[in-house]
């Protein structure tokens, strides 16, 4: 496997640190006058999602982590694994466990496309698109004519996620949700 020297560190680079795959967030070069140079590096541990701050002597190297992001279609879950398929036409399938799926479980809809991060060929994490469209399966009855006023109510979506929606939304409607904030964006007109 390739390795990277501190002067190649840049944000987005995937490296191995203490045996865990990490992504570099920031790399600050520090050098006193004629002295030894150092790099103060911020990394996100891709397994735990924790942010680490580490200091390296300039010129130190870290092994590259075999981490790749792939677009995959969500197929189904068997209760233990969530199955995804590459969208590149290869029909190659990957099974992600609950740890890899993580919070994305709230937004998984069959046939939608997700970013699956593979580490050494196995799913490490699943990232939903920024926006998903999901059907409302349960909410209090809609209140017609109250479209302009504020006020919201909880609604349960087809995936089990609960989001706050405006009062006029009723069961069976499809809503657009921002997966980063978990907030309602708009009603999707049924075609």
């Amino acid at each position: 496997m390739a390795s990277y020297s501190t002067n190649e560190f840049r944000s987005g680079l995937k490296v191995l640190l203490d045996g865990d795959p990490c992504v570099i967030l920031e790399n600050e070069f520090v050098k006193p006058g004629k002295g030894q140079a150092f790099n103060r590096v911020k990394l996100r541990n891709l397994t735990t999602n924790r942010v680490w701050e580490r200091t390296f002597k300039s010129g130190e190297t870290l092994e590259a982590a075999d981490v790749v992001d792939q677009d995959m279609e969500y197929l189904y879950t068997d209760g233990e694994f969530w199955h995804f398929m590459l969208t590149d036409g290869s029909f190659e399938q990957y099974a992600a466990d609950a740890k890899a799926v993580g919070d994305a479980i709230k937004w998984l809809k069959e046939q939608d496309v997700y970013t699956v991060t593979l580490y050494n060929g196995a799913p490490l994490s699943v990232t939903p698109p920024n926006f998903v469209e999901l059907e409302v399966v349960d909410t209090d009855p809609g209140m017609k004519g109250d479209t302009a006023q504020g006020g919201s109510k909880p609604a349960t979506l087809s995936t089990g996620a609960v989001v706050n929606v405006p009062l006029f939304i009723s069961i069976g409607e499809v809503v657009k949700v921002d997966t980063r904030s978990g907030e309602y964006v708009s009603r999707v007109k049924s075609s």
Binding site: P32, G35, Q36, F38, R40, K57, E60
Partner: peptide, 14 residues
């Protein structure tokens, strides 16, 4: 990997 001056440089820097 740091000699005495390297350690001093680390402390000076941070």
């Amino acid at each position: 990997g740091l000699d005495r001056d390297g350690c001093l440089d680390l402390l000076m820097s941070f």
